[in-house]
Design a protein around this nucleic acid. Sequence first.
DNA 1: CTAAATTTCTCGACTGTCGAGAAAATAATT
DNA 2: AATTATTTTCTCGACAGTCGAGAAATTTAG
Lengths: 407, 407
Amino acid sequence: MLTKSSTELVRQRNSVLVLAALRRHGALAHTEISDSTKLSSATISAITADLEKAQIIEKSEQQATTGRGRPRVLFRQRRDCGYLVVVIISSDGVQYSLVDYSGRLIDRFSEERSHDPAGAERFVASIREGLSRILARSKLPQEKVLLISISSKGLVHPTEPALVWSPIFGSKQIDFGSVLRPDWQAKIILGNETQLVAAALGAHEENTRPAEFRSLAALSLGHSVGLGIVRRTGQGEREISAPNFGHMLHMANGGLCRCGSKGCIEAYAGFYAILRMAFEVPLDTIPAKFVPVAELDKIAAQARQGHRMSAFAFRQAGVALGNGLSRMLSLTERMPIAITGPGTRYYDLLRQGVEEGLGQAHVVRMEGMPEIRVVPDEPNLVFEGHLDRALSVIDQDIVMSGIQGAD
Amino acid sequence: MLTKSSTELVRQRNSVLVLAALRRHGALAHTEISDSTKLSSATISAITADLEKAQIIEKSEQQATTGRGRPRVLFRQRRDCGYLVVVIISSDGVQYSLVDYSGRLIDRFSEERSHDPAGAERFVASIREGLSRILARSKLPQEKVLLISISSKGLVHPTEPALVWSPIFGSKQIDFGSVLRPDWQAKIILGNETQLVAAALGAHEENTRPAEFRSLAALSLGHSVGLGIVRRTGQGEREISAPNFGHMLHMANGGLCRCGSKGCIEAYAGFYAILRMAFEVPLDTIPAKFVPVAELDKIAAQARQGHRMSAFAFRQAGVALGNGLSRMLSLTERMPIAITGPGTRYYDLLRQGVEEGLGQAHVVRMEGMPEIRVVPDEPNLVFEGHLDRALSVIDQDIVMSGIQGAD
DNA sequence: CTAAATTTCTCGACTGTCGAGAAAATAATT
DNA sequence: AATTATTTTCTCGACAGTCGAGAAATTTAG
């Protein structure tokens, strides 16, 4: 059921457009905003006047006097308009970042994380503390924090900020919304880590070649395996999703996975699975909780020196990934695949298997191999993805909430 | 990149809303449209006046005098506003239907279809003839046909009306757009058959329980295996997609499929595959082009009487379907699955395998079995799906093209 | 024949976008 | 120093659209 349109909605959408242009290009002059959004100069005047009165944007002081004519006056976001807290949960710690409305990092610290799988309550308590701490350090009033953007590996709920399944806590559901809402009036959003990598790569694609970009998948290789998909919708927005790729069935009755099921992709392509295969441990062995990267580096070195079983382990992992990707491509459309995460350092060993696994599917035989890029610096992409998503949510919310001028 | 909004766009969207209400509920009075769309009475007056002037809707003559007060005047679509041709390509023939703007069937006939796989050119020629014929029979001027909506099994191009892969013609691409555009000024759209089944079921769901409906998958079982997915987008529209499910990889290096690849789902769950398995023919045997349903009925009867290999063949087919569905669910979200097509008559034999196949995946163990419904009357659903999709496309196009009053 | 009820239509207020041109502010030129 | 060209920003009136309120229309009930 579509919902009705009104003139006020038009203003909202166009205001978001103006804010998005400012996000993409930095400080812009009146005429530049007009060019970028295709809105008329008069409309830009009206919208910027509103946004300025509401203290969301401000006129920039320094006007780089360019040639003759009346000098431009640049608009930019007011940094103090609101703040964003980014919480990145990784396997060995939690990183808290405070970011202002313009996207500038203000404060950041990390905390160790206990690996006690039973400590879900303690874990969320530590997150609450971490959030209080970053707020206290900033000396900002709490209501200035407009959004808390959390990411983790695992399966996130499609609508609520809740972790449905995670590598550490399993099916013990963690609902950040209900935990944080008593303390915080900020909106809380949760994203899968690889989903945010996809968001960042998608934003980048759309900036560099806006005409071509349709969709893209990010595949993160590490202790666990994650997939994020970003695609452009009919309305021109980017939609990101985080399938349960690591635990998609690779092979019925296959190797035992950390999740308790058999035959998941991760049970062949996760770090622990490669280790298990290389050491010829039976596939129904309960997997190691955690594998030091050094361990895997050693196996990789052996594989590169011709050790059969080590090379085979990587190859099998590649096949599992390739098969899984082929299934993803069967269900969606042809799209480039960006491989990221610590596992990229073994991509030389995985590649052949990936291509073999992809090549076994009808789609790939028909449409050809998808473009595969290796993009190693995952942590940066995760943070960029947070910013991309969170700041546009903030822009939306600010505009939706109705713009009132301050006295 | 989002595009700017304007007041004219508001009118367009709201006009579409009015036409959609008329589609859903039939002839409606001024006040009823207002209730249904939440638009104010004044706006309804303005929009209906425009649409009436443009000869798209008309005031209905018969006013069912209900109680006292000024009698209602009902609006309805003008049947002669435009026409739609529905072309349903099935394995044994092509059905042509002429439908008026209100969705009423005016004329219909079917033609036999040659099974010559080399005859792609002859086939498209026969479609051109069929279209000419249905137009000639109607004695309508050609420009009154606003849309030609074609459906087939196989893989359709995401944006163009072109068949990328089909069971009969394989990878020989058939571009209906380039073939028909010289003759017809009508817009041409192509849909996968199961995609349209999903569209019809989705429309039905949204009519019966509009609040709950999020997404739904239709699985069509027959000589080939098709999947259609319908889901509601953020804007409240329904989006339909047709993945290449039948040729998604079920098992690496598995049975030989009609498509030439190995291990496709269809190579286990297509009719020919069940036959092959039941007769213990080697799995690398080149599959039969066509299996009479009577043949499969015989095997089903044997299976029901306890014949081991026949029962096993159906079970294996079920497992392939279940595994595939579990993979689909891993990549999307939990959704009900409607099973349709001639294969539904064997669902008693398939069920156990389907559930076994589904149960092997982590998603299903975590979220539970998806709801599975058996919906046998596929042909009706396909036609309904055509109407649902095509008429709303026509409504869109009419409104977009700018509404001018007739002299 | 009048009053009540119900629906449709119309008017003025409001919000929004747009094009054109005025106003502002600087650099180049005389 | 004054003038002119140039460029940008701002403002005004026209136009498109929605909405609420109430007028007009038209039927039934009493």
